[in-house]
Amino acid sequence: MNYRQKRIAINNIVMTLSTISALIGLSFLFWILGVLIFNGIEALNIGIFINEGAPPGYENSGLKQALIGQLLIVMYATAAGVPLGVLAGTYLSEYSQGSKLAEIIRDISDIMMSAPSIVIGAFVYAIVVIPMGHFSGYAGAIALAIIMIPIILRTTDDMLQLVPSTLREAAFALGAPKYKVIIQVVYRGARAGVLTGILLGIARVAGETAPLLFTSFNDNFLNTDMNEAMASLTVTMYNYATSPYEDWQRLGWAAAFILSMFILSLNIIGRLFLLQKRGK
């Protein structure tokens, strides 16, 4: 075998190995996806949406409390996280003019994006749950908002910077004050991108379990008072899946399926937004 043949042989071996590793990786991932869909659809029925939690063995048990709790917690987190994230991103892109401070804020928020979410839970436990004396939906929402802000901040910053400066200059030339230029021109120009960032931010926090374990805690029954402990799909999923009761485990799969589909839809919608914008 000459050197050239040897090189080609090595190339073929490595390329085969890469392809095999891709296949291994993908098969594991699709195994999980398959399990999720199979168990989820099997466990799904209308009762899940209209019944509250019930003791094991009880016939009409459902996830209504977790669905509504999840919705409330994520909505409150979004209501706090989105404006804060967007405004902070606006400062970085439009006002900071490349200052050292802005760089530090960018770096720190980048790090926060990958920081362990369970630690955020511990922090919120210390500043909210301990002073209040009990778990609450608010505490959960605050934890999720803290996780969401860096994500929204970063995408807003990036997306606003993509708006061409000539557009800003044109608006300034018409005599508009800066805040109007930002709100009426820059935000509009970056709408699709910022919206995508928000959707991805919501998708990211909606799947968080760890920061809710000891903030919003859990409740087996429907509760819409944000000042009380509150069920969420993720914590319910964790509690039910680790229980020894088969019907609870089934509910856990149903919760996993519903939540995953919600998160995947948000991701897909976000991508479509960006594609649509690029298509223009």
Binding site: G25, V35, M237, A241
Partner: peptide, 22 residues
Amino acid sequence: VGVSIELLAAIPSVVYGMWGLF
């Protein structure tokens, strides 16, 4: 393939944990 890998990265880690357990 690229997009499905990115989407799988978005699936909540609690689901991976459940799969692992069962």
